[in-house]
Computed example of a mutant assay.
Amino acid sequence: MAPQRPQQEVSAWRPRIPGVVEVFHAHFTEYAYPMHVHDAWTLLIVDDGAVRYDLDRHEHGTPHDTVSLLPPHVPHNGSPATPHGFRKRVLYLDGTHLSDTLIGSAVDQPDLRDPELRLRVGQLHTALGHPGDELEAESRLTLIAERLRTRLRPAAAAPIPVPGPVLARTLRELLDERVAEGIALDEAARLVHAHPAHLVRAFSGAYGIAPHQYLMSRRVDRARRLLLDGRPPGEVATVTGFYDQSHLTRHFRKLVGVTPGRYARDARRLRRA
């Protein structure tokens, strides 16, 4: 029986999210990284297998439940720690969310055993894979960065502010004004003079729904009305703020239970009845 060939599967892209330099997904069975450096923070999760690496002359590993944060400009390598290799998802982040003052702490403790953080990073990757879900990705990233800062600098971490109803209401008004065009989280935070993480927490605490979920709900509601008016799904996607028809379909099916095409067909059938 011929030996199995080494696998190298890679996908990479740059999303339209402030602070994210690159998204990198890879599956390697035998490939080993030599010592190298990055000019960005490396936020790494391993979905299958494990990676062993050296950072600052100390050996580290990535069990399944960890999140690894490797600081910029610090040499490290990487190789499979299991016979079948590893499958990983990586975000390269600039200094927007993580400052250089945290580099020392990250060198000392690059692997964080934090199941909730691990779950959030996975959810962020899912959002980054769907063009049009930028507000969700920004919201998830700002909360992840806040948790990382707290883990790396627990003594200096500021207490989480109590959610403010006025702040939440102001953001809701902004979202209502910009249902189709949307608004970036950083812009909303500047307009209401609040930290992005505080803004997300305030809104979620006041209304029981995240800002991106609220915005998508409003867009789907508008789409339903236009579909009932007989407008085609592709046109509806454009005028209601979705990236494309498939983006509309995914959120519409999640909130309504059927695709926009099925919804429109049933509406036409009932009108003829």
Rank of each mutant, 00 (worst) to 15 (best):
M1E: 15
A2H: 01
Q4F: 10
P6C: 02
Q7S: 05
A12I: 01
W13Y: 14
R16N: 08
P18H: 10
V20E: 02
V21Q: 12
E22I: 12
V23F: 11
F24V: 03
H27E: 09
T29R: 08
T29E: 14
Y31C: 08
Y33F: 15
P34K: 03
P34Y: 02
P34D: 04
M35C: 08
M35W: 11
H36G: 10
V37Q: 12
H38Q: 06
T42A: 13
L43T: 04
G49K: 02
G49L: 01
A50M: 07
E59T: 14
H60W: 15
P63M: 07
H64L: 00
D65T: 15
T66N: 03
T66H: 01
S68P: 08
P72G: 03
N77F: 11
G78T: 01
P80F: 01
A81S: 12
T82H: 13
T82D: 07
P83W: 08
G85A: 09
G85V: 04
R87Q: 12
K88D: 03
K88M: 10
V90R: 00
Y92A: 04
D94K: 03
H97P: 01
H97S: 04
L98A: 07
S99K: 03
D100V: 01
D100W: 05
S105G: 15
L117I: 04
R118H: 14
L119C: 10
L119H: 13
L119F: 09
R120H: 07
Q123Y: 04
Q123K: 05
Q123P: 00
Q123N: 09
L124G: 02
H125W: 07
A127N: 05
G129N: 10
H130L: 01
L135R: 05
S139A: 15
R140F: 08
L143E: 08
E146V: 01
L148M: 14
L152K: 02
A156I: 03
A156H: 11
I160A: 14
P161D: 05
P161A: 11
V162P: 04
G164C: 04
G164W: 03
L167P: 05
A168P: 02
A168G: 10
A168F: 11
T170D: 15
R172E: 15
E173R: 12
A180E: 14
E181C: 07
G182L: 13
G182A: 13
L185S: 04
E187C: 00
H193E: 04
A197F: 12
A197E: 13
A202P: 02
F203S: 11
A206F: 05
A206T: 13
G208Q: 00
G208R: 02
H212R: 04
Q213F: 12
Y214K: 01
M216P: 00
R219H: 01
V220I: 11
D221V: 03
R222S: 13
R225Q: 11
L226I: 08
G230F: 11
G230E: 09
G230M: 10
R231D: 12
R231M: 06
P232M: 11
G234N: 00
V239Y: 11
V239R: 10
Q245G: 14
L248S: 02
L248M: 05
L248I: 06
T249W: 02
R250K: 13
F252W: 07
L255Y: 14
L255M: 14
G257I: 06
V258S: 15
T259L: 02
R262K: 09
R262D: 04
R262S: 05
D266P: 08
A267R: 05
R268G: 09
R269T: 15
R269P: 08
L270T: 13
